[in-house]
Design a protein around this nucleic acid. Structure first.
Lengths: 192, 192, 192, 192
DNA sequence: AATGAATGAGCTTTCATTCAT
DNA sequence: CATGAATGAAAGCTCATTCAT
């Protein structure tokens, strides 16, 4: 059994996905969460204030997806491809919500919070690069923390371009993945 | 003297910057534009439909900035650095509006239009890479159109991270620029 | 034809009388005024902000009632009785609304305004006393302005006691009127 | 240590003074009283039903103030002045609450209760007048019960005008007291 | 083409009241 | 007796949109 706050967050994710943020009413969220209208306001002061909580869940989902996709015993190149796959998959599934989160939220009172929320994902990729660097799989000049952000930015923006803008998604996705992967390999200076 | 349509677009930019998209009312825009409430609807059917016009202005500004920064007779490496500089500069100056444009994308049905609007910038970078490829300055395996989007995505997301999220902007910016430039050079396989 | 603002004020008076302020909804007022809900907010920011406008109307009604009741050529004693009659009558007809106005309004941001609004009635009674003083009908030690307020306070509070609190109104009213009139005569030091 | 009911009444007085009746929520009262939301309903059925209890407290204070001020062995004229002083003092100290009580009357169905609550004060003044009448200090035509109400209404309305409405309170108060006292003496037909 | 007062559907928000603990 | 999280009906208020001028 979920507590009310979790119920609200998960319901909000669902409704935002289906109707978009603009068209989502508080009434839609509470209906799906199966709670009373007033209960929403016990936990959140407004529709948009649910966003940081959603972002937290999304980051958890993303890390879980990456962890789930990456095989521990694979080569770095393969792992890299798996990371890209995972990010593309998450972006495809949750494109609308991610778009909002990446975009920095029109109403930017929460921006500082986002970085905090994102931190675990940055850390994971940093660690991933760090191990590769130690193992000599990528060039020595890499600064792992900064590059982690670059890699995430690169792959996510690429995935967004495919899933948000391009009409002909299906075949485009794999071509785009190849391109970003190739770019990544060169960018990271893979020597395997 | 501006015509009414331009007045609306510029007023919308101002108000969106100050209040965010969600909290901006048509009334705010027309008030700042100094026109009547009804006049708005002679030019735009809705609040969000102003966004493409705003994006157009921003893309023009971006291309102008890049063109202005890049020296025709410089080496490719230098030019690349200049492109990065230009994009960072534009992002710094118009961070809120750019965030708005990205945010506006998520919540509208105008997504298709964005690509059209962005096309000139993609083209410029494509052409820039094409020339470099022909001149043998970057690796042959580069697909210029797709890579153009990757490059823009990479640099823009990097700039956003600095200017939208990071607190300690000033020194961070140049360090981040170095890192992204280095990553770019490797990614593009520069041989100069 | 009334303008919208006047329509609102008169509708508000009616609804307040029938349902009381607490139970009156903006919806009730606009319904009776035959205007749209939103139109209300073009003229007043809240339900209670209509009050000063209502008070103005009430003061006008009161002065009109007094003017209408008092016969120019009557003796001062008779006129005084007519003034008392008029105030009792108005209080009886509009007891609920007057109660609010006299009480000083629970939400006391408007108190200063009330005095301004009441001024014309104070003036009328002052002038009435002034003429009586000049004519030698009342004692010389009377300070007309201050006594005007006393007279109004005395008669109104007396009328309120009858119509707001006492159950057995009908016969009480005339007895109370006699008593207040007698008290007034002595208080003013009538010599006729 | 107060019992819960007393806690509620005193908290209600405080909150009503600060926010006004209209804007006061049960939640505000229970918060200040430091009791649970539900506990309120064990003692009072509604927000306004606390008013009689508040009025009771005020009447007690008023009678106490009058008793404390009036010297048993003074002349009637002096005593009358002392009564006026006491009422002015109480009105000055508790002007908001008194305003609230009067305002609360208009908007409730508790009006009947008010009279009951006020009864002790009316009685005290009646008795005061009765003794004066027997002693031959005031005119014989006085009906003590009815006149008691007139006197209270006159003095209270006069005090309210000074303390609720008039800006320049300090000096006004004593002038107004003189005027009301003079009016009272004549009205009561003092012969001393 | 331009206006801006008027509209009213529909949203957000409140808050008195309940009831399982 | 006491609690306070949960309720949901009901009200407030907004604001995109219209249309007579």
């Amino acid at each position: 059994m979920m507590n009310k706050k979790e119920k609200i967050v998960h319901a909000a994710i669902e409704v935002f996905r289906e109707k978009g943020i603009e068209k989502t009413k508080i009434a839609d969220i509470v209906k799906l969460a199966n709670i009373a209208q007033g209960t929403f306001y016990l936990y959140f002061p407004s529709k948009l204030s649910v966003m940081p909580a959603i972002a937290e869940v999304m980051v958890e989902k993303t890390i879980a997806a990456v962890r789930n996709e990456v095989q521990e015993d694979a080569s770095f190149t393969t792992k890299l491809a798996q990371v890209v796959d995972a990010i593309f998959k998450i972006t495809c599934d949750y494109r609308e919500i991610l778009a909002l989160i990446y975009a920095g939220m029109g109403s930017t009172e929460h921006i500082k919070e986002w970085e905090t929320v994102y931190e675990p994902f940055y850390s994971w990729i940093s660690q991933f690069l760090h191990e590769a660097k130690v193992a000599g799989n990528i060039r020595d000049s890499i600064h792992v923390e900064r590059t982690a952000k670059l890699v995430i930015g690169l792959v996510e923006s690429s995935a967004e371009q495919v899933y948000l803008y391009d009409a002909k998604q299906d075949d485009q996705a794999s071509i785009q993945k190849e391109e970003v992967l190739s770019f990544l390999k060169h960018g990271l200076g893979i020597r395997e």
